[in-house]
Simulated assay, not measured.
Amino acid sequence: MGWLYPFRPRPWADIAAEFRQIAAARPAYDHMAEVVDSVLDSGAPLLGTTSLGDLIVVDRPVPRAPWGAVVVTGPWSRRVVMVPGWVRVEHVGTGGEVAERPVAEAVPLFWRFVAGTFGVVPAAHVS
């Protein structure tokens, strides 16, 4: 199981700028910008894109369809209704998992999913 359309990655700097701009107007998006900043700071070999206010992350190389992803759902996602002040992170694909937590837990929750799905951890956490 997974998405059947091609994955089109975007530069992380562009994604970061997009979420910072949204967060400046809508502070409920601060945690989304923090997740993207953590990817930029990590040096992890991940690819990302956005869709309807959500962050979609895959491992390198660019996957062929069908592909799975870690998705961080934005506060005003068109895919799911979110509880204000909470974040939803999910593994979309075979054996998918979903977790919803307070936004203060967004970055560690994201990395838990990335580590479990792709085996990738931020360089700062490698022993």
Rank of each mutant, 00 (worst) to 15 (best):
G2N: 01
W3L: 10
L4V: 01
L4Q: 03
L4D: 08
L4N: 13
F7H: 07
R10Y: 04
P11E: 00
P11R: 11
W12L: 09
A13S: 02
A13W: 08
A13M: 09
E18T: 04
Q21I: 04
Q21L: 07
I22P: 02
A23Q: 05
A24R: 13
A24K: 11
A25I: 01
R26C: 07
R26H: 01
R26Y: 05
D30M: 08
D30S: 07
H31F: 07
E34S: 10
V35D: 03
V36Y: 02
V36A: 05
D37I: 05
D37K: 06
D37F: 07
S38I: 05
S42M: 05
A44Q: 03
P45T: 02
L46Y: 08
G48P: 07
L52E: 14
G53E: 03
G53D: 09
V57D: 09
V58D: 09
V58H: 02
V58P: 00
R60E: 15
R60Y: 04
P61K: 10
R64P: 15
P66Y: 06
P66T: 14
A69L: 04
V70W: 02
V71D: 07
V71N: 12
V71K: 13
V72L: 15
T73A: 12
G74W: 06
P75Y: 13
P75V: 11
W76L: 10
R78V: 11
R79V: 12
M82D: 07
M82N: 15
V83Y: 10
V83E: 09
P84I: 12
P84A: 12
P84G: 03
V89A: 07
G93R: 08
G95I: 06
G95C: 08
G95T: 07
E97G: 06
A99V: 15
R101Y: 04
P102Y: 02
E105I: 13
V107Q: 08
V107S: 12
P108C: 11
F110P: 11
W111P: 10
V114N: 03
G116R: 13
F118M: 11
G119N: 01
V121P: 08
A123Q: 14
A123S: 11
A124R: 15
V126D: 12
S127M: 12
